[in-house]
């Protein structure tokens, strides 16, 4: 049985904000299906008693003094903007008329 359907690929692409061509959807479904088929081998392992590992080093919350320090200049922060107006990033219309 297929691990992933074309409909699911379309759903995931929407979640990922990724527009796919018809041909890409076709190819992606086949490739993801084969990769997920391979990944199924993890089911051979009983992990019911195993804790998940999200990081290999002990993580601690880091605090620092709330002190004023130099930071990126506004002009530098805007320098790579694809579109800008004055001191703002400009984007296409968000709300329909």
């Amino acid at each position: 049985m297929a691990k992933i359907t074309r409909k699911e690929v379309e759903h995931v692409a929407r979640l990922a904000r990724l527009e796919l061509t018809e041909e890409e959807k076709e190819r992606m479904t086949a490739q993801l299906d084969s990769i997920l088929g391979y990944i199924d081998k993890l089911d051979e392992l009983d992990t019911s008693q195993v804790e998940p590992t999200t990081t290999v080093i002990p993580m601690v919350s880091v605090m620092r003094e709330d002190a004023v320090r130099p930071s990126l200049k506004q002009e530098d922060a805007l320098a790579n903007a694809p579109d800008r107006q004055d001191a703002f990033f400009r984007v296409p219309r968000i709300i329909e008329d």
């Binding site: 990724l18 527009e19 694809p82 990033f89 329909e96």
Partner: peptide, 24 residues
């Protein structure tokens, strides 16, 4: 997402469409 840096598609209707095409 084509907002603060990097490529942005020249053809888009609205914000979500801009994200989808930029990333494509």
């Amino acid at each position: 997402d084509g907002v603060k840096y990097g490529y942005r598609t020249p053809r888009s209707e609205h914000l979500i469409d801009m994200y989808m095409k930029t990333r494509r």
